[in-house]
Amino acid sequence: MKYVLGRLGQAAAVLLAAFTVAFVLLQAMPGDALMIKFENPELGLSPDQIAALRVAYGADTPLPIQYVHSLLGFLGGDFGYSIQSGTPVKQLLAEVVPGTLLLASLGFVAAVLLAVGITILANLPGLRRIADVFRALPSLFVAVPVFWLGIVLIQVFSFQLRLIPVVNPGPVEGLILPVLTLAVPISAPLAQILIRSVDDVLGYPFVAVVRARGAGPWWILSKNVARNAVLPAFTMAGVLFGELIGGAVVTETVFGRAGVGRLTEQAVSQQDTPILLAVVLLSATVFVVINLVVDLLYPVLDPRLGARKRGIARISRERKVVAV
């Protein structure tokens, strides 16, 4: 229990750090959303009018006060208003989050299935001759850029095979290609880790013992190796969520889907700070929660738990900062 409370405290600290870093970085960028919106020559506003607008939007308030103001707002669930459209950020997010959540979870599930499938194929006793082909797949997958993959999939499945319409696909059809695009690059590192840890575990003496008791290769793989091999991949899965966020931005843009990724992409090009801040904090929260769940589930999966777990938790936290 003490451990759980400690981990929750750490999670809160990470979120605060993410908010602060994001805030500072967004302020440090040259130019801002007001400039982009109002200094457009077509509007023909005079410098005085612009200055008046800046005061109205509160852009002249000192930064520390702005920081405290936004932080208190966030704590109270008020994410501010989009500068570009004036809509509350909360409302914007509420519109797009379900779609992205669906895409991301399906993408993740597909990635896990793909990775497990590749690992099984690479270790199936009947396929020993072509096992190397499957072992090479993850390296290929990890090298494929998401946007390119998306375009190629549209080309092949929509334009050439005409299996999935590009314009107005049904809700299920519309998900197939984006999910696939998202899943492939995420499945690659998972599959690499799984294949390697299966190899490692197969070399352990206890596997020899099970074999000497008459177990066949499939029994050994499914009843003994699998659970041991999944442990390192499991932690990696938490870390990979960062890729999922980045992947969603590109995928939603390529497939023209409304979603957090798309919203982020637009907000970035317009430097719509309140939206960006909310998106950063949203993804950081999801990230922290997933890693927390992974950490707390670890002792359930591995009765030994121990120092290893904490080591990995530290890595994922470092990784998180990079992802933000």
């Binding site: 352990y204 003496p205 020899a208 099970v210 000497a212 003994n224 041991n228 999966l301 009765p303 030994r304």
Partner: peptide, 12 residues
């Protein structure tokens, strides 16, 4: 087997 310490499945 030779080495009892590594010869039992650690998660079983």
């Amino acid at each position: 087997p030779q080495d009892p310490n590594n010869s039992l499945n650690p998660v079983k």
